[in-house]
Each structure stands twice: as structure tokens, then as C-alpha cells.
Design a protein around this nucleic acid. Sequence first.
DNA 1: CGGCTGTATCGACAGCCGTCGATGCAAGAG
DNA 2: CTCTTGCATCGACGGCTGTCGATACAGCCG
Lengths: 123, 123
Amino acid sequence: MSNLELPVLGQDEAAACCSPMVREPLGEEAAVDLAKMFKALSDPVRLRLLSLIASHDGGEACVCDLTGPFDVSQPTISHHLKVLREAGLVGSERRGTWVYYWVLPAALARLSSLLEAPAGGSR
Amino acid sequence: MSNLELPVLGQDEAAACCSPMVREPLGEEAAVDLAKMFKALSDPVRLRLLSLIASHDGGEACVCDLTGPFDVSQPTISHHLKVLREAGLVGSERRGTWVYYWVLPAALARLSSLLEAPAGGSR
DNA sequence: CGGCTGTATCGACAGCCGTCGATGCAAGAG
DNA sequence: CTCTTGCATCGACGGCTGTCGATACAGCCG
């Protein structure tokens, strides 16, 4: 393990957080930072986990709600949740017996605005 | 090598293309399809290539404009461009001696809208 | 034609990633 | 305390991915 979770990070330095990448070339550091988040989204299981958590009642779900819908083992689900957490896309908290996960909307919003296309998409 | 480029695909079936994933759970097929695009974005070099192409004059760039800013070799750039093309994120065309690449705005828009957070970001 | 320049493909190789079963740890129940 | 349940970590393994140098292909120039 050895590596802690990046808080929400980058928000300031590696950021260039909001303007669409189609307007100006991405800096090298910002690209490295953003690539980590996109990598967290680059697996079908993690994408479904994220949407399952986000669309769950109350905006959060416990792991026990998440292992059912998948064909993979519980340790694998746990691994994917860890990846999402370390990428700063979800938060988690133990509450008694269960551990709950929720989406961090700011992170998704950052990626979303980055991908926004210019209105007049030329060709 | 053996696998052709997915045209733009999914636009119809695997799609569920537009509504944010935070509203309803992503289908398994849609997740697989979307994961391919996010995987194409999960490398810093490819992210910078994409923004470099998009922000280039006229909305397109020839490969000769793209090899300069990077530390990696020309075959590697070519490889990354191929990945972006097969993911349906960019288009390309040979024009005389040079090959030009441009961004496909619809693909970026699809991903962007998928990541849109619900306005009232709860916690 | 022959040579030169721009781009793609090939083959190889090291490192990363998704998955598993086994196991460990936390917390409530009896 | 002991048993059970929920979740995380560990170690292993096969497959994928990013990178390179070498090479092939395409089109212009002379």
C-alpha cells in the first residue's frame, strides 16, 4: 500500500482545472494528474461502480450493495473501490459494521468541463 | 494488427449515450464501450496530443506538428494517435505528404455529459 | 529513375493491471 | 469470550500497454 490517497489535490497547481482542453494545450503536469483520474474511469467495473454509487439512494452505498451486481469477487470490488478512492473520485467512511462510499461531485465536474467541446464544432 | 477501428460505433446500442451516470446505473455494455474511450484518455501523452490537436489552428494538426513537443519517439506518437483514432476520439486523413488529425467533438461531448454532476452536489 | 522526407508498422521487452483464493481485521451478537 | 459477518489486504499469475529501434511504405523533388 504505502501510498496515501491524493486528497482532492491538484485543485491549485497541476490544475488548470476548468477550461476545456480544446482551447489551449494541456500542461505536462496537468496531463499527468488528469490521466490518473481517467485511468480510474478506464475499467467497465469501476464505471458501473461509480454510477451505482452515485445513483444509489441518498447518494451513497455500502459495499454490501455493490458486490451483488457483478461477476467478480469481493476482493476485486474492494480493489476497484480503492482505485476510485485514490483517484479522488469517491469518498468513504466506516459506519458501524458497514463501509459507505459516495461520489465526489467536484472531481467529476472537473473532468466534465475539461472535455466540453467548443460550441461550433467546425467540421 | 488484426483489429480494425471501431467506426464511431455505440452511438445507438451500447450508448445510453447522454444522461449522466450519476442518475441511473450504467448498463454493462455501455460501461465496456465507455471504458474504452476513457482508457484512451488515461495516458498523459495522449491527453496532451488531444488538446494539442484541438487547440491547433484550424482545429487540425499534422503529425509533424505533434512530434516536437514530446520526449517520446515518433513511432510512439504514431501509436498513441492510433489509439485515439480507434477509440473514436479523433479522425485523420492523408493530404499529400502529411497526415492530419482532428478531434471529433461529439465523442468528447458524450463523455463530458456523462460525467456531469447533479447540480445540488449534496455533501 | 533514385533519393529524401514524413508517417506507419513490426517485434521485443519491461512494467503495470485485473483477477483470484487465502487470510486478516473490525464490529456486533449471543 | 467466541462466533459470525462485512470488508480490506496479501501474494501470485496471466495479459495488456508504453516504449524503443529497425524497417517498410507513401509521396514529393530533381
